[in-house]
């Protein structure tokens, strides 16, 4: 199939960037990234600068791939990362617009590559359980209800790709942050420091310059791992509780 690609080219964070047009020949069996590989091979042969994009595992789990395809993070398929999107979902003659994830908190590094280290800093601010290696009791010392464990897993399935931020009209990181808060708060091991965690992670999230959540639900629709916005409600609850009824008496 012959495709016209309109790709955002931006040479570094300071560059203004613009859309450029490319033609590429693809086949149905290719993944979207393989189609871009073909384009890049073509560009290199013409001694031009290939399109930069983040990618790694190409099996939908590492969370590296990050582009917006025809206005939708990771493209049109539900619960699918860009690397798992295949060209059979496009038609011969299609024009495809490809852009980076856009948010102030995700500055563009080059072309379709963005800097998502804000997510790392949110995790660093409290997205963990404070246990040193060797301190753990036996794995079966604390039974955890199967349902609770499954709900925690649903939240823990987040791959940190940032599609939620890219999809949100406000570029909010609430789905990402709430998924981590939920994952840990639901488990008895993590509930211990749940209040502190909610406070510090929200503070960091605010500091990074993400927008506010206005419950549009776009994040949930675009999330390749189908993380639910019920996690956002849980974070709201945790935050409210920890703010007005914190067990920490200081302050």
């Amino acid at each position: 199939m012959k495709l016209t690609l309109q790709i955002w080219r931006q040479n570094g964070p300071q560059d203004k960037g613009k859309i450029e047009n490319y033609q590429v020949d693809a086949t149905e069996e290719m993944s979207f990234l393989e189609m871009l590989d073909v384009l890049n091979q073509q560009l290199i042969e013409e001694k031009k600068d290939p399109v930069a994009f983040d990618h790694d595992c190409r099996e939908g789990i590492c969370g590296a791939c990050s582009m917006v395809i025809n206005g939708r993070p990771h493209g049109p398929q539900k619960a699918t990362t860009t690397c798992q999107l295949h060209m059979r979902h496009f038609k011969d003659g299609d024009t495809i617009v490809i852009e980076p994830f856009r948010a102030n908190a995700f500055p563009v590094v080059k072309d379709l590559v963005v800097d998502r280290s804000a997510f790392d800093r949110i995790i660093q601010s409290g997205g963990y359980i404070s246990v040193n290696t060797g301190q753990a009791p036996d794995g079966n010392d604390i039974p955890i209800e199967k349902g609770i464990s499954a709900t925690a897993f649903d939240a823990a399935a987040c791959i940190g790709c940032g599609a939620c931020v890219a999809a949100c009209p406000n570029a909010s990181a609430m789905l990402f942050t709430s998924a981590k808060v939920s994952h840990l708060a639901l488990l008895p091991q993590g509930a211990v420091e749940g209040e502190r965690r909610a406070q510090s992670m929200v503070a960091q999230m605010d500091k990074e310059g993400f927008g506010f959540c206005s419950n549009t639900g776009a994040c949930e629709i675009e999330c390749p791992k189908e993380i639910s916005i019920s996690n956002i409600a849980r974070l709201n609850r945790q935050y409210l509780k920890s703010s007005i009824a914190s067990s920490e008496i200081n302050e």
């Binding site: 206005g71 852009e99 856009r102 102030n104 406000n170 570029a171 310059g209 927008g211 639900g217 629709i221």
Partner: peptide
């Protein structure tokens, strides 16, 4: 205002709005 300014560079393609 905060929300609007959280994405200074808007998307080129607007066909992908999934929220109401």
């Amino acid at each position: 205002k905060v929300n609007k300014s959280s994405r200074k560079n808007r998307y080129v393609s607007n066909q992908g709005q999934v929220a109401n």
